[in-house]
Computed example of a mutant assay.
Amino acid sequence: MSKQTAISKKTKKIIPEEIKETTFLLTDDNVMEFFLEYDKKHKENKVRITTDFGEIDIKLFEATKFHRSNFIYLTKKKYFNNTQFYRVINNYIIQGGNSDDQQTLNKRKKIGRYLLPNDHKKGFKHDRGMVSMPSSAVANPYKMASPFEFFIVQQHGGAHNLDGDYAVFGKVVKGMEVVDKIAAVPTDKGDWPQTNIYIKKIEIIE
């Protein structure tokens, strides 16, 4: 057997596994089973958001298993890196996880198209510093969540008008002063910051 033949056979053996790994996509049909299993093996519950204004540490709640697991999964996939806080309303919320960059859309396509199962009825309120997830913009009677985006309640006294409609799945444990700085930036009529506010990275710290 020539050296060239041996290399070709080895290459053929490796490629199917690589294809299998890169073509897995989350869908509405497999998301519940996937994250129930993911929750058993991935127990990380604290992340750090690095922004242009500083760092924000967030603790994720074990009780909201679908949302916690999803956030950890996307963090490990480096989805949030170089996305933005794209909706900012002072004394209300800052919302991130999206961008007008084509790379963000490409990353979403590689992860899948899905909504998260309902994690609303866990007793968590939209107090100041809580982290929540917006519902999908599509017709959505079960209030399933759009998995790629999140918002932090910045309003003093909380934003309890949101209770019951959106799933609180974590809280800021350090860096609310950074949230306040972001919330105070000038925005356009659509609440998009006049200067882009990048999420440089989100990383797991515990």
Rank of each mutant, 00 (worst) to 15 (best):
Y92W: 14
F80E: 04
F35K: 06
H67V: 04
N140L: 09
Q155T: 01
K110P: 01
K46R: 14
N98M: 11
L74M: 15
E37C: 03
S136V: 03
G123H: 08
V138L: 13
K110A: 15
G123I: 08
T75Q: 08
F71G: 01
H67R: 04
K121L: 13
K76V: 07
P134L: 06
I89C: 09
D127C: 03
V131Q: 00
F151M: 06
N81L: 02
R113Y: 12
K59V: 14
F80S: 04
S146P: 00
A145M: 07
A139L: 12
S132F: 00
E62I: 10
N98E: 14
Y86S: 12
Y92R: 08
N91H: 11
E33I: 10
P147V: 09
T64G: 03
L115T: 08
G157N: 06
A159R: 03
T75I: 08
K78I: 04
F148K: 02
K76H: 11
E44W: 05
N161A: 10
R108Y: 05
E33P: 01
K46P: 00
R68N: 04
D39C: 08
L60V: 14
V153W: 00
A137M: 14
R128C: 00
E149M: 10
P117Y: 11
L105W: 13
I72V: 15
N161F: 04
G96N: 11
V138G: 05
N91R: 10
F148Q: 03
L60E: 11
F34Q: 03
K143N: 11
N70L: 02
E37S: 13
F66K: 01
I152L: 01
Q95S: 10
I152G: 02
P134Q: 05
K41V: 13
N90K: 15
K110H: 10
Y114N: 06
F34G: 04
F85H: 07
Y86H: 15
Y79S: 03
S146L: 12
V47R: 06
S132D: 00
D52R: 03
Q102P: 09
H42M: 09
Q84Y: 08
H160Q: 02
D57H: 09
K107N: 12
K125M: 10
N70K: 01
N70P: 00
E149N: 12
F66D: 03
R113G: 10
V47Q: 07
Y114H: 13
N91L: 06
F66Y: 15
F71Q: 00
G97H: 04
Y114P: 04
K143S: 08
N106Q: 13
I89V: 15
P134K: 05
G54R: 05
L36Y: 05
I94A: 12
Q103E: 15
I49F: 15
K59A: 10
I49G: 01
N90T: 12
L105V: 11
G112I: 09
I93P: 03
Y86T: 08
R87C: 11
F150H: 07
A137D: 12
G54E: 05
S146R: 11
S136E: 06
K78G: 02
H126C: 05
S99N: 09
H126I: 06
G123F: 07
N81F: 01
G158Y: 00
G96P: 06
F80W: 08
I111R: 09
H42F: 12
F34C: 09
N106L: 12
I93F: 02
S136C: 04
K122M: 14
T64E: 14
R48H: 00
S132H: 01
G54I: 07
S136Y: 04
K110C: 05
